[in-house]
Design a protein around this nucleic acid. Structure first.
Lengths: 127, 127
DNA sequence: TTTAATACCTAAATTAATTATGTATAAGAA
DNA sequence: TTCTTATACATAATTAATTTAGGTATTAAA
């Protein structure tokens, strides 16, 4: 019974995110790019990596991450491989061949997106 | 009766958008920035301006734009002023004082967002 | 005279993400 | 040694932005 209490208490320590609206729609691109960069990663590792790279500014929620990974896997962009480390489960994801190609497309879209957003907010540089 | 036919036919010419997922969440920032830049604008003008600046890459849908404008107005960030030009209605929007301040915040968030996304996809430049 | 462009609007459906849980092991602090 | 935190997976209900698909009306162009 005190196990249940632990869960209740533990839930209090879970960080709430108030990420800017802007990050909506960028999660898949981030996942794909990190996997392309690092070969294989597991979910929790991705959240920590993103937190580190963005200096704590972007915190991916588990509720967003895991369904996103499952969807990318279902779409054939990711392969999964389960490992047990220290009696703890880890699901390593890596890009499939299709996933590698799609990652290129997504990164190209991201470049266009960033260029367009910069044109919109900093017109002096462009016109 | 042929008027109704015109509407039916006309609907065929409405462009469908396949904008990248990445633009989701950026509409309000775009609207606020354009208004800050141009003083006052009406809805249709905003869609055309965005299309021009992004060289046709970003096409804002009316179904997204008008509700967004109404919401920003309801939140007190925009003021509206109706004009009739060539017997056609135009609703000009401009930033309120609060809206001007909020625009600064949103632009700052956008800068952070772009910087973070660039760190994520181009780690060589940062690490 | 039909089509396309200008100009506003909304409602239903989709969908990504948030919020709030649940479960379990290991490490560290009290 | 007990409580807390960190590691590690997961899902279900809700929220909210956007898409999709309409609707209405005037002016310009083909």
């Amino acid at each position: 019974m005190y196990k249940n209490l632990m869960y209740i208490c533990n839930s209090k320590y879970r960080m709430k995110m108030k990420n800017s609206q802007l990050y909506k729609g960028s999660l898949n691109t981030i996942i794909l790019k990190l996997l392309e960069e690092n070969g294989k990663m597991y979910g929790y590792e991705i959240t920590q990596k993103v937190k580190a790279i963005t200096l704590g500014e972007l915190n991916i929620t588990e509720g967003a991450l895991y369904p996103a990974l499952h969807k990318l896997e279902a779409e054939g962009l990711l392969d999964v491989e389960i490992e047990r480390v220290d009696n703890r489960l880890r699901k390593y994801y890596k890009l499939t061949e299709t996933g590698t190609k799609e990652t290129m497309n997504r990164l190209s879209e991201l470049e266009d997106f960033i260029r367009n957003m910069q044109s919109l907010v900093n017109p002096k540089l462009e016109f």
